[in-house]
Design a protein around this nucleic acid. Sequence first.
DNA 1: TATTGTTATACTCTATAACTATA
DNA 2: TATAGTTATAGAGTATAACAATA
Lengths: 144, 144
Amino acid sequence: MFDLGHYLPYLINRAGARLAVEFGREIRRRGIALQEWRVLAALADQGGQRLSDLAGLTSIDLSTLSRLVGRMVRAGLLSRERMDGDQREVSVALTDKGQRITRAIIPIAQRYERRAFRSFMPAEEATLKALLLRVYANLERPER
Amino acid sequence: MFDLGHYLPYLINRAGARLAVEFGREIRRRGIALQEWRVLAALADQGGQRLSDLAGLTSIDLSTLSRLVGRMVRAGLLSRERMDGDQREVSVALTDKGQRITRAIIPIAQRYERRAFRSFMPAEEATLKALLLRVYANLERPER
DNA sequence: TATTGTTATACTCTATAACTATA
DNA sequence: TATAGTTATAGAGTATAACAATA
């Protein structure tokens, strides 16, 4: 009736869930939740961000992110301040503490990525990444 | 500090989130939540399942699934009964109504999959699926 | 005693919408 | 009026653990 084993959303969800669960458990022991890591990683890559850009970058819903960032600010991981130019916008950035913790988690994250890729040839790694990027781009929400 | 654009868990999460959000919105208008669809699709592929097998198949936590299945039984989508052999086990299956609804959603799901793959050559589709399967297998939880 | 599944608790996420402040 | 972000609410997911029934 339905062939799950060749259904792309299933294959993506299954691989993503396994990555998320295992890695999430390990960093939670260090006091960081998976969604918090996603925010830290996005800021480590791109520097300070507007909240709505950060929502797009992390795939986290804006209102969820607003409260998540609030908790992370209270925990001393992030700073949040109104932009100079447009006072409606908010700039979110890592604090020194946030940077320290992010730097401690990065090697763990890279270890999990290597584990996902064990048995892969370097060219296969690059192929998978490129194909996932094309899937993402293909699903760009059409203009309404 | 961190290269998000080449980090596999990020690329998987991003593509999976976009698939899930768009498709989830469309089927919710038809009264089915995304997690419910995952259960329906797993049962449509594999027939009746033990609850713990279904948890593995759908990547849904067992206690979450237990309550989700309870709601779906109350909604008339699933049947749930103790196994003949081992009375601890539970067998979950689609009802006629569940089958009807599943059959109505399958073409929508396939439409989203085709959208994700537009611009893909058939061989590239197969490559992506095979690589995702290998990632999943590589992350098999090691025996403890 | 171990396994399968259910239930409880506390916290978090999601969907939706109302709301504030700024443009 | 539109945009960026915050807050409120209800329902659902998650982590953890206790629990019942069965093996």
